[in-house]
C-alpha cells in the first residue's frame, strides 16, 4: 500500500556527485513514497548504484540533500548514521555475505550487533527470515557453498531480519537464471505486500522491472531522463528510453 499522504520515505534533491574527473550525477531530484517499489534503470556507469549509496550514507554528495524518513543523511558522520541504518538495509550486488560465517550467523549478525541478546528471539527471527526467502534448509552452509541465487536470497534474509522499513536492492537479479530471478522478484513483491516495505531497486532486468516496479526512474548522463509508471514507460516517446527498454543499440561496424 503506497502512502502518498506523508512526506516521502526517501527524498533526494539536487544530488551532485563527481568521482575523480567524471561528473556522475548532475542534479537528481527523486522521491520514493512509503510502501512503494521504485526501480532505477539506465546504462552502466550512469550513477544508479551511486545514487543508492547516497541514500544509506555509504557516499556523501558534493551537493544536494538526501532525507530518509525525515532524517537528513548528508553531512552525518559514520557513527551518526545509525538511526538511518536502523530504518534502511541494503542488498549488495554480490550479496556481500561474510565468508567466515554460516548463512544463519550471517542473518543473525545485524541482530547481534544491534544488541539483541535473547537467543530464542534471534533464532526465531533468523528462521522466519530464512523461511521468507526459502532457505530454511541451508542455514548451516557457508556462503562459498551456495549458488548465486541462494547467496542473493541469503542477502535478502539478512536485509529483512532487522525489520527495516526500506530495503535497497542493487541489481538483485543480475547473473541469475530466469527461474531464480523470478523467485527473487516474488520475494521483493511479497515483502512489499505483506510488510509494506519501501524498496529502491537498481536493475537492468526488464522482465523483473515490469513485475515489481510501481514507478521507474531512468538515469542518463547524470540526469533523470524518465520518471513514471510502467505504463508511462511503455508509452514513452523518448527514443533513448525505448532503445533501453527494448535492448536496441545503434552500432556502426
Amino acid at each position: 500500500m503506497i502512502d502518498r499522504t506523508q512526506e516521502p520515505f526517501i527524498r533526494i534533491r539536487g544530488l551532485h556527485k563527481r568521482l575523480g574527473w567524471q561528473e556522475i550525477l548532475r542534479g537528481i531530484d527523486l522521491d520514493v513514497w512509503r510502501g512503494e517499489t521504485l526501480c532505477i534503470i539506465g546504462p552502466s556507469g550512469e550513477g544508479k548504484t551511486v545514487t543508492m549509496k547516497h541514500v544509506i550514507g555509504l557516499m556523501q554528495p558534493d551537493a544536494g540533500i538526501i532525507r530518509v524518513d525525515g532524517i537528513q543523511v548528508n553531512g552525518l558522520r559514520e557513527r551518526e548514521l545509525a538511526p538511518v541504518r536502523q530504518r534502511v538495509s541494503m542488498l549488495f550486488q554480490n550479496a556481500a555475505l561474510f565468508d567466515s560465517l554460516t548463512v544463519e550467523r550471517n542473518v543473525a549478525f545485524p541482530l547481534l550487533e544491534a544488541g539483541l541478546r535473547d537467543k530464542k528471539e534471534i533464532k526465531e527471527r533468523v528462521r522466519d527470515a530464512l523461511e521468507v526467502v526459502g532457505l530454511s534448509k541451508h542455514g548451516d552452509k557457508l556462503p562459498v557453498n551456495l549458488s548465486g541465487g541462494m547467496r542473493k536470497r541469503a542477502g535478502i534474509a539478512r536485509a529483512i531480519v532487522t525489520r527495516a522499513q526500506c530495503i535497497l536492492y542493487d541489481e538483485p537479479t543480475s547473473s541469475l537464471d530466469p527461474v531464480v530471478s523470478d523467485v527473487i522478484d516474488t520475494v521483493i513483491l511479497r515483502l512489499q505486500e505483506r510488510h509494506g516495505i519501501t524498496s529502491l531497486v537498481v536493475t537492468h532486468d526488464m522482465k523483473s522491472l515490469f513485475k515489481i516496479a510501481d514507478r521507474i526512474a531512468m538515469l542518463k548522463d547524470g540526469l533523470l531522463r524518465f520518471l513514471g509508471t510502467k505504463e508511462e514507460l511503455r508509452a514513452s516517446e523518448d527514443p533513448v528510453v525505448q532503445d533501453f527498454i527494448n535492448g536496441r543499440a545503434e552500432v556502426d561496424f
Binding site: I56, G57, L58, L81, R85, F92, A96, L97, F98, D99
Partner: peptide, 18 residues
C-alpha cells in the same frame, strides 16, 4: 582488503557497525 573489494566492509557499515 578482500572484505573491502567484495563490499563486505560496506555491508558492515550498512548494518551500523563501524
Amino acid at each position: 582488503g578482500t572484505m573491502k573489494v567484495t563490499e563486505q566492509v560496506d555491508a558492515l557499515r550498512v548494518m551500523g557497525v563501524h
